[in-house]
């Protein structure tokens, strides 16, 4: 008799959750955001359904402001694994010219991400969507269910969640309602990195330190990923050795100076650093309750 290690336990739990969705939910989809958590989630799906291919498509909500390297990585992964990839863009937002520089991070995120996600879920009538969120990310996540019920309007009601005992998940919904399912709920950032290391999971190269063109704004390093970035007076992109701890829209994601160019370097840096991963996300600098509010409105 052998005892499972903590990563083996986490892996088995995630696999159980994914299989439960496939066994019970009508139209599942995996929200694929291209970051490290999505990479781990996808890797777990390959394990859960082997030798079959994961029986659901990937859905990427493209805000049109993602790093170029993310998009390249996304397309490569989907084609190498032979998985169906649905890319959804809020065309209405595009027509209105919504973007982080012109409209600010909040409007941009709401229209190009939250609204776009709802559009896509409605359009394809998905009844269950896997998300890579972890409970250790922030406080409102800490009490969200693994199978998290959403109303027809995609709203989350933190006061009215279904009790979730053992691993007996209630997947029942009425027409139009849906589930968000979080197989990585019980993983921490460190678990994710250790697992990527242990399993040799490919991740977007942006996580590794490389010389990249950046400007410094409000104390944050923003990478100039394309010509759409308006440069202020006297601002001159400089090549600095940087990497990203989290990935999103390039104007909203701060880089950190680093020399961590390998996976072990990254883990070492993370263990020795003293700021949490969300610091690099412009969106979280709002109030402590901002995430909870966003999620009630349908943000993933």
């Amino acid at each position: 008799m052998s005892t499972l290690t903590h990563l083996q336990r986490l892996e088995a739990e995630s696999i159980f959750i994914m299989r439960e969705v496939i066994a019970e939910c009508e139209r599942p989809v995996m929200l694929y955001s291209i970051g490290k958590d999505s990479s781990v989630m996808l890797h777990l799906a390959l394990k859960a359904f082997h030798p079959a291919r994961p029986p659901f498509p990937l859905l990427h909500i493209d805000t049109t402001w993602k790093f170029k390297e993310m998009i390249a990585f996304r397309d490569k992964v989907a084609s190498e694994l032979g998985l169906e990839l649905i890319v959804h863009i809020n065309e209405e937002g595009v027509r209105q010219g919504i973007g982080p520089f012109t409209h600010g991070s909040q409007v941009h995120t709401d229209i190009m991400k939250t609204q776009a996600l709802k559009q896509a879920l409605d359009k394809y009538r998905f009844t269950a969507a896997f998300g890579g969120a972890r409970r250790d990310e922030e406080m409102s996540r800490a009490k969200e269910r693994i199978f998290s019920f959403r109303t027809k309007e995609h709203r989350w009601d933190p006061k009215n969640q279904r009790p979730e005992l053992w691993a007996v998940y209630n997947t029942r919904i009425h027409k139009g309602e849906s589930m968000r399912v979080f197989p990585l709920s019980n993983w921490t950032e460190l678990d994710i990195w250790q697992y990527i290391h242990h399993e040799h999971i490919p991740i977007v190269p942006l996580y590794y330190a490389r010389p990249r063109p950046v400007v410094e704004r409000d104390g944050m390093l923003i990478m100039v990923d394309d010509a759409r970035m308006p440069l202020h007076e006297g601002e001159q992109p400089a090549r600095r050795e940087v990497r990203f701890r989290t990935l999103g829209c390039y104007p909203l994601t701060a880089a950190v100076e680093s020399t961590a160019s390998s996976l072990t370097d990254i883990i070492q840096e993370m263990l020795l650093t003293n700021s949490s991963e969300r610091q690099g996300r412009v969106i979280d600098h709002d109030t402590a309750a901002s995430m909870e509010k966003k999620k009630q409105e349908g943000y993933f």
Binding site: T3, L4, T5, H6, L7, R9, L10, Q194, H197, H198, T264, D265, I267, Q268
Partner: peptide, 14 residues
Amino acid sequence: DIAAYLKAQEQKSF
């Protein structure tokens, strides 16, 4: 020795 550290971490229980 981060590699040795990670190796040791793999044996962690739950």
